[in-house]
Amino acid sequence: MDLEKQPQQPVAPAEPPPAGIRASDADRDRIADILRDAMAEGRLTAEEHAERIDLVYRAKTLGELEPLVRDLPAPGATAPQTGARPYAYGPEGPAGPADNLVAIFSSSTRKGRWRVGGRTNAFSLFGSVEIDLTEALFGQRLTVINATSIFGSVEIKVPQNISLRGSGTGVFGNFEVMTLESADPEAPVVVVNGYSVFGSVEAKPKRGKFIADLHDQLRKHLGR
């Protein structure tokens, strides 16, 4: 006997998990990525980004994470732009651990032609750290540098025509970021966060260094 075909029942949409569920590291990283993109698009200031990121990694439940991105568009909601990209960032590599530069009673320097990761941690204790981005290749638009100086110094140099932002504190020391806003909305954004104790953290443009020429060379290398 042939069985009559039963009409398919509509599938109910999946309900979001309860707000009281404990948040995982992946949940926090997902929210942090949304905040990172929002700051790169100018939706959040560097101070707002730093405040929300602090709350992200303090959050214990999903209910504490959701309000931090409630006023931001969902990932991918913005229509993609067409046409040639003004900056040849190159393919972004997979997310990985942050680059670390540590100087304890010593010095650590990163300069020349090198590929900048999305996150860099710089720590100086009775030492000096120098990060020179003027000839670096940016694999992504937003680069975050977390700088800590205790009885030492962290110096960051950037090209003149990128956006440079920062948020930090000096305790019996100096924390200075020379804010820049590029006229090009696609220019790289470098954000410096951190603090200094009896030391200094400085981020400023290097006179005469511009990123456009470097990216023209990268386009030629990539055949774009």
Rank of each mutant, 00 (worst) to 15 (best):
A77W: 03
P80M: 02
L137P: 03
P73F: 01
G208S: 09
R110I: 07
F138H: 11
P18R: 11
E51D: 12
G90C: 13
I34M: 14
A38F: 15
A98H: 03
I162N: 03
P185H: 01
D213N: 06
E130L: 14
A74V: 08
S108P: 04
L65I: 10
I34G: 08
R110Y: 04
V171I: 15
T61K: 14
V171P: 06
R119W: 00
G20Q: 11
V56R: 13
I156H: 10
S124F: 08
V201W: 07
G117F: 04
K220Y: 05
L214Y: 01
P80K: 12
L218F: 09
F105G: 00
S182G: 11
P7R: 12
V191A: 03
G90Y: 07
L180P: 05
A32R: 03
D184C: 03
E66G: 07
D184H: 08
A136M: 11
N146D: 06
G199W: 01
E176G: 09
P75G: 08
L72W: 09
P80Q: 06
G117L: 05
P17M: 06
A59G: 04
G152I: 03
E51Q: 02
R165N: 06
A79I: 04
L101A: 09
P17G: 04
F105Y: 15
N193S: 06
P185M: 12
R165M: 08
K5I: 02
A122L: 08
G112P: 00
Y57T: 10
G118E: 15
S124G: 09
A38G: 10
D216V: 12
R36A: 14
L62G: 06
L133C: 04
N193A: 05
P159T: 02
P73M: 00
A203H: 05
I131T: 03
G20C: 05
G170Y: 09
F123E: 07
S24R: 12
L35F: 10
G173I: 11
Q9L: 05
M178S: 10
L3D: 09
A46S: 11
D33Q: 10
G63M: 14
E135I: 00
P75Q: 01
A103G: 06
A19G: 13
S124Q: 02
R119E: 15
